[in-house]
Amino acid sequence: MSSNDLLQLRGVAKSFGATLALEPTSLDIQDGSFVAIVGPSGCGKSTLFNVIAGLLKPDSGEVQVADHVVTGTAGHVGYMLQKDLLMPWRTVEENITMAARLTRGVNDDDRAEARRVAEQYGLGEFLRHYPHALSGGMRQRVAFMRTLVTRHPLLLLDEPFGALDAQTRLEMQQWLLEVWKEAQRTVLFITHDVDESIFLSDRVLVMSPRPGRIIADFVNPLARPRNLDVLTDPHFVELKSQILHLLHGGR
C-alpha cells in the first residue's frame, strides 16, 4: 500500500454531449472514513458515483481503488441507491445474496453470511419474507445488507434514505452508524440533507452544479459516538451554517 487512501480520483471529468457534468476532479478518500457529499440536484454527484462504480467511463482521468486502477470497469465497489431495487420475486435472504448469485453462484457460506448479518441487524425473522411484505425502512436495510455482504471495502450510498419519512430516516441514520462502526468499511454518502451529511460523516464535500465540481471540503469536528444531541451542538450548527451558505449563497 502506498497510502492510507482507499479511493483516489485523479482529474476525473465527464461530459454528456456538450454539457460538462463533472469538472476534472481529484479526490482522496481515506480507508475506513465516512465521507458525505452534499449538493443541489444536477450537480454531478450521481455522475461522480457512476464513474467510481465503473458504470460510466470518464472522458479523462483515473480512478484507483485500493491502489488498483479501475477506471471504467465495474465490480470493485458496493453501491446502493434511493430505490431499494430489491427483487420482488426473491426472499430477503435471496436478495441479500444477490451479488453472489449474479457473479458466481450462491454457496452455503453466502447464505450463512446473509443470515448472520440479517440476524445481527434486526431482520432475522424476515429472512423468508418477500420484499413487498416489508416497510420502506426495512427494505432499505435489506438493500444495505446486500451491499455489505459483497465484502467490498468501499460502499457508495446514493441518497439511500431519501425516500423515507423523517422519523424512519433518523432511525436509519443511527442504524447505519452502528453498522459502519462494526463492519469497518469506507463509505461515500450522497445526500441533499445537510443535517444528515454532518450527523453521519467524518468529512463533508460540497458540490456545485453545472459543471459539477467540489467547492469545499470540511473536516467534521464532532466526536464519535454521536447521538441526537449533536444536532444542537455549536460545532454542528456552525458547520451547517457554512455549508448552507455555500449551497444557497447566504440567501
Binding site: N50, A53, G54, L55, A74, G75, V77, Y79, L81, K83, L85, M87, M98, A99, L102, T103, T150
Partner: peptide, 14 residues
Amino acid sequence: DQDLLNLARVYGAS
C-alpha cells in the same frame, strides 16, 4: 428497471 440492470453491472454480473 434500468437501475436494477445498472446495479447488476456494478456487481460485475455477466
